[in-house]
């Protein structure tokens, strides 16, 4: 299995995302923002960082990068895509996921280990978890507040598309404590916290994040 990891100018977490892919037993393939070619990968991770310096809005310029045209097309065809932090912002800007991420309600950049509840265990990136499992992964973002209009939020809840929800105090003002959501077909998932930093107790708080990468491999084998 080959999982692509995109690098934009300003991406920070591509190295850790590639490491997580390898930890899960897949081959990590570097994808460059200016290259439309996805090099035959089976899934894509859009990692965190500050693509294009967060100019205009987080993810607003990255969504027009040549590689994103191919990712959007592949995602519509059912390819698993995971957006982490800035990657989540990019997927929202690209219209692959509904809603938007805005400045944290208390303005502070939040950097801490965060408990999440896995509420959807049928998406391509969460099937390995037990329903309602609580996992501990790092959260580090200044614009992590998830917002959408009420009808979109109701639709996400009704369709079970809230994949991850913050446990305990809401860290950033996200609507309904939402930490991560998925597309209608469950193949595209975005979340603000960082599973790729929690794959090895030596370098992260837990290895709870690894399940997302295993889940993607499971979903590819199932196809």
């Amino acid at each position: 299995m080959r999982i692509g990891v995109i690098t934009f100018p300003g991406t920070l977490d591509d190295v850790d995302a590639a490491r997580a892919v390898r930890f899960a037993g897949a081959e990590a393939v570097s994808l460059w923002h200016a290259d439309e070619d996805l090099h035959g990968v089976d899934a894509v991770v859009v990692p965190g960082g500050f693509s294009y310096g967060d100019y205009l809005r987080c993810g607003a310029i990255a969504r027009f990068a040549p590689v994103m045209t191919s990712v959007a097309e592949a995602a519509r065809g059912g390819m698993p895509v995971l957006g982490i932090c800035n990657g989540f912002q990019i997927l929202c800007e690209a219209g692959l996921l509904p809603g938007a991420l805005v400045r944290n309600a208390k303005l502070h950049f939040v950097c801490r280990d965060q408990w999440l509840r896995v509420e959807n265990t049928s998406s391509a990136w969460s099937a390995r978890y037990e329903p309602n499992a609580e996992i501990l992964v790092p959260l580090k973002s200044g614009e992590g507040g998830y917002l959408a209009d009420k009808s979109t939020l109701d639709e996400l809840e009704a369709e079970g598309r809230v994949v991850f929800r913050y446990v305990g105090e809401n860290p950033n003002g996200s609507a309904r404590d939402i930490a991560g959501i998925c597309s209608q077909n469950g193949r595209v998932v975005g979340l603000m916290p960082h599973p790729e930093h929690a794959i090895d107790p030596l370098t992260g708080p837990t290895d709870d994040g690894l399940g997302m990468f295993y889940s993607a491999l499971d979903s590819l084998v199932a196809v």
Binding site: L56, R57, A100, V102
Partner: peptide, 8 residues
């Protein structure tokens, strides 16, 4: 489509 994000 670009300067504003009509969601917010």
């Amino acid at each position: 489509s670009f300067l504003a994000n009509p969601v917010i």
